[in-house]
Design a protein around this nucleic acid. Structure first.
Length: 224
DNA sequence: CGCCAGGGCCTCA
DNA sequence: TGAGGCCATGGC
């Protein structure tokens, strides 16, 4: 059986559905998103979260998003108008707050000029070209926005994914982002929901098995 | 106390 | 292209 598909089954069986993107869908934090189709506010918030979580634990990001909400700053128009230093202070808990405040400003500017309805008419490859031109948006942030905010099928590769694939010898240790992305996308059905789950499951699994060297991944090593 | 977290930019070969 | 420095808080 195909290893990539096999790993997905094993992880799903072990951890259950993750229902990513997290937090924004939790009822207690954002009632309007719970169990509903994403609205534009939710999509924007996911993009903001994708920036804020760069090399940062989600817990710290969650606090920052709650603060943005509390100060009524969670929209493209509001962030565009906001004082950058105040914005930085608001997202302090997410770390790199000066850089990220600038990146949020740029992102807000982008989304005020490019409406979700229009962006969603494009396919993942077109969107990728567009987002990668934005300063502060690299491959992972770009693909996270495309997959989770715009719901187009593209596989998100992060440090955990690379670590896991290297450890399981599914790719070379110095494999590029695109190589690893291709590895998954060429072995899977192009399905947004499944790609969303799979990436989330890798993160969950990696938190257990790939946080500290030497890695021990009994679940997957035994089964491959 | 040190290490690391769901990266990306800039600089310099 | 790729390696290394830099950005920074909070949890453990």
């Amino acid at each position: 059986m195909n290893k990539i598909r096999h790993i997905y089954k094993l992880l799903l069986d072990r951890y259950g559905p993750q229902k990513w993107w997290p937090t924004t869908l939790k009822k207690d934090i954002h009632p309007t998103y719970h169990g509903q189709k994403l609205n534009n506010k939710a999509r924007f918030e996911i993009a903001v979260g994708a920036i804020l979580t760069q090399n940062t634990s989600w817990k710290n990001v969650e606090k920052a998003i709650i603060e943005l909400n509390r100060k009524n700053l969670l929209s493209a128009e509001k962030i565009k108008k906001a004082n950058q230093k105040i914005l930085a202070k608001t997202i302090k808990s997410a770390g790199y707050y000066n850089q990220k405040a600038e990146r949020l400003k740029i992102l807000a500017d982008f989304f005020s000029k490019n409406k979700f309805e229009d962006l969603m008419k494009k396919d993942a490859a077109e969107l990728r070209e567009i987002f990668l031109k934005i300063k502060g948006v690299g491959p992972e942030t770009c693909d996270s926005i495309i997959l989770y905010a715009l719901e187009k099928p593209i596989f998100v590769v992060d440090a955990y994914t690379k670590r896991m694939c290297g450890h399981l010898k599914l790719c070379k240790k110095d494999a590029s982002y695109r190589e690893i992305q291709d590895l998954f996308m060429k072995n899977l059905k192009q399905d947004t929901k499944m790609f969303s789950e799979y990436h989330a499951l890798i993160v969950e699994h990696a938190k257990h098995c790939y946080s500290r060297n030497p890695y021990s991944d009994r679940l997957l090593k035994q089964s491959l």
